[in-house]
Design a protein around this nucleic acid. Sequence first.
DNA 1: TGCCAGGAATTGC
DNA 2: GCAATTCATGGC
Length: 286
Amino acid sequence: MNVNLTLPYSYDFDRALERLAGNPVHSVNLEQRCVHVPMDEGNIVTVQATGTLYEPSFIIKGVYSEKQLDHIKWVFHFEESLDGIAVHFSKTDLAPIFKEHLGTPLVRSFSLYGELMKSIIHQQLNMSFANVLLMRFVEKYGSEIDGVWVYPEPERIATVPVEELRELQFSTRKAEYVIGLSQAIASNVLDLESLREKSDEEVTTELTAYRGVGPWTAQGFLMFGLGRANLFPVADVGLQNALKKLWQLDRKPTQDEMRARFQDWSPYLSYAALYLWRSIEVSPMK
DNA sequence: TGCCAGGAATTGC
DNA sequence: GCAATTCATGGC
């Protein structure tokens, strides 16, 4: 079925699409203002913008059920206003950045498992090479439904030998991280769905117990996987560079310097991080 | 051409 | 306990 949706507050779907397009696994069409979302049930849902920043409306095509529609609303944060958050930041040093990127939402990952795999693959690598590795991973082990790439099942990756990922140019350690975590998930030792109900602290403790998951990866999972509002990954080089630029430093800020100054942004640290990343990303629309 | 990259584990003192 | 080193390879 197709559903029309109108929001009573500002929401910039085109900016959301720009960010989604940064991940080559995603199927985004900027001209048609839409993205294709693979669902757990195996179908593909298309979300397309039909409105504007201040009068946002959408058509959601191909949802099977009310449950699927709720999931789409959850993924795109359709039922929470960004306007209050923008007001919060208007009183901080991030005001110019929030004005520039007004209405940019925190879109959740389409797959919790995919978010974890992506995070580990991206660790310590420049974006372009990290995305090459990610696409090799998805093309080799994932599937393609109607032209839309879908992350593999953890059960598949759990059986992959380290040497096979080495052929894709994974480091040995990175291969071990990806396989080990997939084994834990496939064997139900780690239940990603259950993390939805747990606190930020509980999720961090549970995830960082695994090799390959440190603070940065756990915070990224909370922010983009679960959509939690108050995380700021101080280990992130992109955020360090964004703050170097904002604060006009001649070097990257230390993690302590970042923590000392981000209290004003709480309880929306995730949005501060999101908008800071945007502030140093080149916009293909401009 | 080295240094750096949307880190994390391991080693060394 | 910490700081330094290692991991692997492409990008600039």
